[in-house]
Design a protein around this nucleic acid. Structure first.
Length: 477
RNA sequence: CGGGGCGUGGCUCAGCCCGGCUAGAGCACACGGUUCGGGACCGUGAGGUCGGCGGUUCAAAUCCGCCCGCCCCGACCA
């Protein structure tokens, strides 16, 4: 049950974030530091995210499987960069069944190694390729500083792992999945994202190249919302994933991996939320429309409820909830469901019964502006149309916000200023040195080198050396 | 791991500096009644080893020591 006002976003963004998650019952803190309990309402959102992504994976030929959570420590050590990147944040099991284990088991931080091991057993011939497997799983990374959904010790995600005969095929797969993530973000989550390549320092430990979709949150900070990695032959060589080609010659595979996590829930909260609470994108919202019946006595209740039932059954194609609680007032329910981000509210009271109407209120527009009375006969088309409209308006609002905080600073002085409350899109020479200094001096990191380049050349925003690509810089989560 | 804050009914906190009878408030919860188209109200009630351990004292939520935990801000990260 919600109590009174949230901390406004403008006053304290992270406080707002924590409060809205707990009050809307998306998640709660677990008894273990850095761990969260995903509550039913939060999990329902995640399930819708899962379905949207899973459908796209299946459409592109992928199949699901499940690999073990425990990975022999020695597996991690087979890929040098990989183990260096992950060792600081590993959880390791050293005792099992009361006995000290001969070899410690790592709780998977990601599954490239164990899947690589299995692929080496499964792949013999070019005829076995490609392998296109995804798994929905939990993983553990022992983070210092945690935030609900954004960074927890344990999180849920999907990780796709594919093996291919050629580099070109694997690169194509990497970009195909990046495209699927971008499509999902825009079409279902109503989040505008920028697809691009990660810099060498930001890329996945063990990858040849990493790609990302980057989104701007409501406080202008960037959130990496999905990643897709071209792993080259790094893991194929470490795990001996080889096949015989048409010429009977032994070749190493080319592999990829790609993932989206429960962090996406954080992205949705921070992209669309407002001072009233959550605003869920209609295509992912666990409840797309809530019906609030309004009556003062049993007589009115007797007239209102049949209409509520009628409307509910007409809207069977949507995720609809009837809030029939008697212990709280309609006014309370309005605020409660707004806080929980439900895109549409349908009010049905005695006056509506009389006139054959319902009141329809949209979450993305506050107060009277978003409220309209429509005929009961038109309810299905009205809801269908409004949900689409809300999706579009949420997307546009987020895109406009992002564009309003996007800068192309003329020099480094201006750069330092704009990244305090926005992103900079600047030429960068590509040297890790400039990247590090910029980070030290401004806290802004390279977010991605967008696939979509303006063309031409320029001078590095930091050192002035010739640069061939423009890069997004921002403070990030 | 550094800096800051905090542990008192389910939640938010007061009380602690300056020890003293039975530990308080608001919200939430239960019951009854009046309410109900933008966060209702009245009444009654239930609920607490004051984070843990040890010490000082006639007496500790309060003073002292140690430990544990959480949140926030930084260095690392889906």
């Amino acid at each position: 049950m919600a109590d009174e006002k949230l901390t406004p976003r403008s006053e304290n963004y992270s406080e707002w974030y924590n409060q809205v998650i707990q009050r809307a019952e998306l998640a709660d803190y677990a008894p273990v530091r850095g761990c969260m309990v995903v509550r039913p309402y939060g999990w329902a959102l995640w399930e819708n995210i899962q379905q949207s992504l899973d459908r796209r994976f299946k459409e592109t030929g992928h199949v699901n499987a499940a690999f073990p959570m425990f990975i022999p420590m020695s597996f991690l050590e087979k890929e040098k960069e990989h183990v260096e990147g992950f060792s600081p944040e590993l959880a390791v099991v050293t005792i099992g069944g009361g006995e000290v284990l001969e070899e410690p088991l790592v709780v998977r931080p990601t599954s490239e190694t164990i899947i690589g091991y299995m692929y080496s057993k499964w792949v013999k011939s070019y005829r076995d390729l490609p392998i296109l497997i995804n798994q929905w799983a939990n993983v553990v990374r022992w983070e210092m500083r945690t935030r609900l959904f954004l960074r927890t010790l344990e999180f849920y995600w999907q990780e796709g792992h594919t093996a291919h005969a050629t580099a070109a095929e694997a690169e194509e797969e990497t970009l195909r999945m990046l495209g699927i993530y971008a499509d999902f973000a825009m079409q279902d989550a109503a989040i505008p994202v920028i697809p691009g390549r990660k810099s060498a320092t930001e890329k996945f430990a063990g990858a040849a190249a990493s790609y990302t979709i980057e989104a701007m949150m409501g406080d202008t900070k960037a959130l990496q919302s999905g990643t897709s990695h071209f792993l080259g032959q790094n893991f194929a060589k470490a795990f001996d994933i080889q096949y015989l080609d048409q010429n009977n010659e032994l070749q190493y595979c080319w592999t990829t991996s790609w993932g989206v996590s429960t962090r996406m829930v954080g992205a949705i909260i921070m992209t669309h939320g407002d001072d009233q609470g959550l605003v869920f994108p209609p295509r992912l919202a666990p409840i797309q429309a809530v019906i609030v019946p309004i009556y003062r006595n049993e007589e009115e209740q007797g007239k209102v409820m049949p209409v509520v039932e009628k409307i509910r059954s007409q809207l069977a194609a949507f995720r609809v909830k009837v809030d029939d609680r008697t212990e709280v007032t309609p006014g309370f329910k309005f605020n409660d469901w707004e806080m929980r981000g439900v895109p549409l509210r349908i009010e049905i009271g005695p006056k509506d019964v009389e006139k054959g109407t319902v009141a329809l209120a949209r979450r993305d527009k506050p107060g009277r502006e978003g409220k309209a009375f429509i005929s009961q006969e038109n309810i299905v088309s009205a809801v269908t149309g409004l949900l689409d409209e809300i999706h579009i308006s949420l997307y546009n609002r987020a895109r406009d916000f992002r564009d309003a905080h996007m800068y192309d600073p003329k020099d480094y002085n201006e750069f330092q200023e704009v990244v305090q409350n926005g992103w900079a899109f600047s030429w960068w020479c590509g040297s890790a040195d400039c990247e590090t200094k910029i980070k030290e001096e401004t806290k802004a990191t390279t977010r991605c080198i967008p696939l979509d380049q303006p063309g031409g050349t320029g001078k590095c925003i930091y050192c002035g050396q010739p640069a061939t690509e423009k890069t997004y810089f921002a403070r990030a989560y």
